[in-house]
Nucleic acid binder design. Sequence first.
RNA 1: ACUAGUUAGGAAGCU
Length: 315
Amino acid sequence: QRTYNLAMKLLSERGQLPMAEALFQEMKEGGVKPDQVSYNTLICAYRDRGLMRDAEEIVDLMRRDNVQLDTRTYSTMIDIYSKQGEVAKAEGMLREMLKEGVLPNVRTYTALITSYARTGDVAKAEATFEGMLQVGCTPDTFAFSAMIDVFAKKGMVKEAEGAFRRMVLAGIEPDVYTYSSMVAAYAKGGLVEKAEKVLEAMQQVGCAPNLITFTAIMDAYTKDNRLENAEAIFEFVTAAGMKPPVQMYTVLITAYRKANDIRKAQKYWKLMRKAGCPKDKIAYLSMIEMYKKLGRDKKVEELEEEMEQDDPDLE
RNA sequence: ACUAGUUAGGAAGCU
């Protein structure tokens, strides 16, 4: 019954996962058989909370209850394994679905490509992309962006540009994600000017850069030792009333500490805390690295302790 | 069995 499914989704969205689980049980015990949608909804609810084990258990339950796993089930599981870095399991899911005659779609392939982006397996990502084309699956903005990101993370600028061109030629519109990945690619490759061009180009076609795009371009500037430019972006963002994310502070902190400008690094660290940013492991690690190099062991210990404290969310 | 509804994928910072 779809009323149940909808209710389960709403409950889990409002943090009432136990209620959603209860509903699921009620369905099983009462006359209403849960369908694929019910199982998938639960799997996604667990995934969103990082309860990967529970998501897996629902899949097992589907098998036991003789409910066919569908494209969405497999895609979600591939996404889960990809986020866990369990590429082999993700690949296994694709193999299984093909064997079972469940057709993968763009989303399935994109999830897998993303997992290769995380592990840096360019060859497999490309093979997956080509495989998708071969089965007549048309890549969309997500798929191309994922592919561009594979190259971006490796600093393979030429290849990223190639994929971007291919995307445009195919008539698929790039969006903020795509452009941000391109900026990141140029940042990694040390080509600031090109990164700047991307920022201009996107605005010309009416695509507004967001905080992620800005962080990426700041990163490009700092890698080219243009800290003033990076700082200018930060000022601009703040002046525009936007709230800089942790990552933006980290870019500045790391850049300044590498330039041996300890005061500035500390300044942004303090600003970040004052802004009430959530505790962030990478930010801590950057500061710890700084104090380590300065030989200030006390500070190092202090921060390490603080980092571990009362924060279950730190991964 | 068919059909319909509800469920899945992409971007930035440390080493």
